[in-house]
Each structure stands twice: as C-alpha cells, then as structure tokens.
C-alpha cells in the first residue's frame, strides 16, 4: 500500500506540530521532571497529606486547650515534616469553617454502595434476560435450560470471563 502510505505521511507532515512556531510559549519554560502521575498515585499522596494535617491540627488544638492526650513525639515530627506548613494551615481553616461536614475531596465524593441490593434484579449472564436459576458449578445465572446447555458447553475459564463482567469472579492472589 505504497500510495496510501505517502498520503498519510504527507498528512502527518502537514499536521505535525513538533517544530511549529509557538510564539506564545515562554522561552524559559522547562517542564518539571516526572510530572505525570496517574490517578492512583495522586490519591495516595492526597490521603497521606490529609492524615498528616489532621494529626497536626489535633496537636494544635491540644496545645491551645492544654489538653494532653499523649501523641508520640516521633510520629508527629515525622508526619509534620512530610506535610507542608501551608497544608497544615488550610486544614485548620477548613476545620473551623465547616463544622462536622468534611470538605469534599476526590476520594470522599464517591457514591456509597446500594442500600437495597435486593432490589437489583438477577439477570442471565449469557443473554441478559431475567434469570431464575444459578448453575451451582460455575455460579452463572441463566434464563432457561437452553442457556444452561450453553453454560455446560463453555470452555475452561470462559465462565470466569462471564462472571468478570459483573465483577463476581474470584481472583486468587
């Protein structure tokens, strides 16, 4: 497919912005090394900072009220070293503003599991129809005996893939 190739190469050349003139960009700009973090890494860091700031703010109130719940000096020092002074300050501010209501964070706005799990229907894992039966061997739900015959004929591991669709497969670690 030589002609096609040259067409797409020409397209690439036309659309390439590697060396395009970018006058709006600061000449002194250098991106920080390792600035890419996936969501999981970011959330772990947030959690860590939060834990530190809460302990730090507890220590602060303690100092204010003169109440002495003993907090080991070493943990406090270790945690506060990790949490910046700014974070400690914001944590304090937050506590005083929203009494009893935790500030929304990426982690705590996740919807809770259903309170009525029994209301959710049972659906055939193969066809999606309402299912009245469960195969005791594979734990797959099925709608009728024809589907059951299909389940019996499934190859090894395929039933697990069906279970994985609704997150009911067992993963051994």
């Amino acid at each position: 497919m030589a002609p096609n190739n040259t067409v797409s190469t020409a397209l690439h050349e036309a659309n390439d912005i590697t060396n395009a003139d970018k006058p709006f960009k600061s000449t002194s700009w250098k991106p920080a090394a390792r600035r890419n973090k996936n969501l999981k890494q970011v959330l772990i860091e947030v959690n860590r900072a939060q834990a530190a700031s809460i302990i730090a703010s507890q220590a602060q109130t303690e100092a204010n009220t003169g109440d002495n719940t003993p907090i080991p000096e070493s943990t406090l020092a270790g945690l506060s070293a990790r949490a910046s002074a700014a974070q400690q300050a914001t944590a304090l501010q937050k506590l005083s503003l929203t009494v009893g209501q935790p500030a929304p964070t990426y982690g705590n706005i996740d919807a809770a599991p259903s309170l009525h799990p029994a209301n959710s229907g049972h659906w055939c894992d193969i066809t999606g129809l309402p299912a009245s039966y469960v195969d005791p061997k594979t734990k797959l739900r099925y709608a009728n005996k024809e589907v059951y015959a299909v389940i019996r004929g499934l190859g090894q591991g395929v039933s697990d893939q069906f279970l994985a669709v609704r997150g009911a497969n067992i993963i051994l670690k």
Partner: peptide, 10 residues
C-alpha cells in the same frame, strides 16, 4: 443498576 457491571455503588 451499577451492580450489573460489577460497580459497587448505588
């Protein structure tokens, strides 16, 4: 009904 797709949320 998120449980249909294995999402454990209401």
């Amino acid at each position: 009904e998120p449980s249909m797709a294995g999402v454990d949320q209401a």
